[in-house]
Design a protein around this nucleic acid. Structure first.
Lengths: 233, 233
DNA sequence: CGACGTAAGAGAGCACTGCTCTCGCAAACA
DNA sequence: TGTTTGCGAGAGCAGTGCTCTCTTACGTCG
């Protein structure tokens, strides 16, 4: 094997992970904008220049944290979904949505890192896009399953849709196979509403309008389930 | 009059406004995180400490910019709505939604300033909350009008709702008088979806899923109009 | 109209940041 | 065993937000 498992690369990976752990802790305590490499180094008993052996730039560190956050969230949702896999699309939808919110409220700063204002030199690498798709893949699979079970009722109405003019049909078909393209928009809207809700909740836009966001979120998820035709299980 | 119109306060207000203008320009060129008081001062031919006569802190400057951005957006939407005031709720809804998106895409960094990750010492002052409500007020008024016109069809189904357990009925009733509380959730969801869409669009989450966001947005607005029962005008 | 008071800007300075570069040293590899 | 390679230390540069003191100029009011 080419370059795996040198005892040097093992130590390197461990140190890299340690840096990210400290960074995560500091972000949780303060915020992402308050994260400084020098404070990380101080915390680790290192000199600041040493960190540059592992991350060429502060933004590179943040990019790595973004990737981890996407994967952490993705894994949480995948597990929540798997836990109720046999319970039908409606239950899976609810469980997954709640898992998303649970992760977000437990890790608000990491949520802001991936769904908040992007860092100036954003340019999300492919790796990041891939990790970001994990959550979408779970939701897509749920929709797919629900359509497989009941391949009955004709696609609502036959108003032929121009969905191909504004959506990437191929990638969406890969995420939710078996779902009619006419339903893609509603699926994307549901996804948008979930994360729009969390962004509004965590960033304070619901102050004054809502007082019990746990309950409100559940009701929103209910409404979305209806609009996605997930109820007849 | 207590303290208005001293020629000194006039000059002061002018200078304050000039600082904000330069700040806005720099934010548009770079980004909010790249905004530095020293660069503003350089741009204005001042020394950096002079700015502190006008804003005690960088965050204070940002807060002022946030307030202005909310009001700018609010005004844009109010005007767009007023322009089609007599055309019925459905047309007003579309015009207002498009005005929101137009403002957002024209001022992406200012959008990020108000709907992106909040600045650490957030604590939105009442003034800000008030300004933020302007857009909501327009959308609420549209919904109100549509319900006034057709006070007919009974409130959908009579499943008695627990909406009072999680929403602030009083403030919402003030924003959309005449609308049944059972509809508040859908209204908030529509609002959430609009801004969730823009956040996803501007922050890059639709990359790979959508290719024509103009058209997609219009379709989303259509769907929301249906879900809000705005079509029968 | 002239003296006073006040506010604006200049300038130096502090503590902090990201990042660079060079220099030893120790561990891995041949 | 000798050599390469990578890690951390340390000094330093340019930039930041913010504070403090000092001077100057301009409005205000007796």
């Amino acid at each position: 094997m080419s370059k795996t498992a040198n005892s040097r690369t093992i130590a390197r990976d461990a140190q890299t992970e340690a840096i990210k752990d400290v960074a995560r802790r500091l972000i949780a305590e303060k915020s992402v904008s308050g994260l400084s490499l020098r404070e990380i180094s101080r915390e680790m008993g290192l000199v600041s220049s040493a960190l540059y052996r592992y991350f060429a730039t502060r933004d590179d560190l943040l990019t790595a944290l973004i990737l981890d956050a996407y994967n952490d969230l993705g894994q949480a949702v995948e597990r929540a979904d798997a836990r109720v896999a046999r319970a039908g699309a409606s239950a899976r939808w609810r469980a997954s949505a709640r898992a998303i919110r649970r992760w977000a409220t437990n890790n608000p700063h990491e949520y802001a890192l991936i769904y908040g204002t992007p860092i100036p030199g954003y340019a999300a690498p492919t790796e990041t896009i891939e990790a970001a798709a994990r959550v979408a893949r779970v939701l897509g699979a749920i929709l797919s399953e629900s359509r497989k079970v009941e391949a009955k009722d004709a696609p609502k109405n036959s108003k032929r849709s121009d969905v191909g003019r504004y959506l990437e049909l191929d990638s969406l078909a890969a995420i939710m196979p078996g779902v009619a393209p006419e339903e893609y928009l509603k699926a994307l809207m549901a996804w948008t509403t979930i994360f729009g809700f969390l962004t509004f909740e965590l960033f304070g836009q619901y102050v004054g309008s809502a007082k019990n966001l746990n309950l409100m979120f559940d009701r929103v998820v209910d409404e979305l389930a209806v609009s996605l035709n997930l109820e007849a299980t």
